[in-house]
Amino acid sequence: MSILILAEHDNASIKGATLNTVAAAKAIGGDIVVLVAGEACGAAAEAAAKIEGVSKVLVADNAAYGHQLAENVSLLVAELGKDFSHILAPASTSGKNTLPRAAALLDVAQISEIISVESADTFKRPIYAGNVIATVQSSDAIKVITVRTTAFDAVSAEGGSAVVEAVASAHDAGTSSYVREEVAKSDRPDLTAASIVVSGGRGMQNGDNFAMLYSLADKLGAAVGASRAAVDAGFVPNDMQVGQTGKIVAPDLYIAIGISGAIQHLAGMKDSKVIVAINKDEDAPIFQVADYGLVADLFNAVPELDSAL
């Protein structure tokens, strides 16, 4: 078996999600090849070559791949992927954008967001907002898979010495172009990679009150997330949303503040190792998944917690 992984990177470095995806590939077993498609992405390719367990890195360095436009990258993945038994990418917004397109070009199904590898053709994945875990078997010759990164422990970014090979193929579908990106700037850790996450919900009442959570997060070295209710109410931007349709997180400690615990939110955080809930409604469903629940007014409890740390 041979596995092609579409790397998540920013041309200069490899994103952590790629390391979790390599871990999933190791669970499948076989030769692991990482594809770095980008523009001026030599540094990212060098970094990919050092990842533990990777035997080869393919670098497609072309302006058409610079912004990971799905129309272009999917053509490359479909061309190179023909020779592999499996094609994997992290279930990030980039992987979710490109991989189904490549799968359709190859006329094969995609298996989305696997959380475990049962065998080379059988995988587990959550459905219905994580209320049901399905074991699914693929009958396609090429298995195209996105990986829920929180379900696989990252392999080491060091220790490998893969060969790096340039790929000449330049696919430009010519149907789309990149205009701009607005990147949320933050000195806090990345939400999906943080070991502690502090999240706020509708109970925060407004965006200004999130300042309390930022202060708490900075003391803990934590990232700050939010429920869909808080995002819909306009308190914070969507890239902070944790849940079924937002980001999936599984930190060592998740502190849910003023979050009632709708099933869609639980889908995004219930695999956290330790869950703390602070809510004034003692019947809030969040307490059913919390290891430590504190029934209290968050406007008293959060400043108190902040000063206790």
């Binding site: 917004t93 980039s94 789309s176 990149y178 205009v179 701009r180 990106e181 607005e182 890239d239």
Partner: peptide, 8 residues
């Protein structure tokens, strides 16, 4: 997108 928003 994960990092914020992207315009195409």
């Amino acid at each position: 997108v994960d990092s914020g928003s992207q315009v195409v």
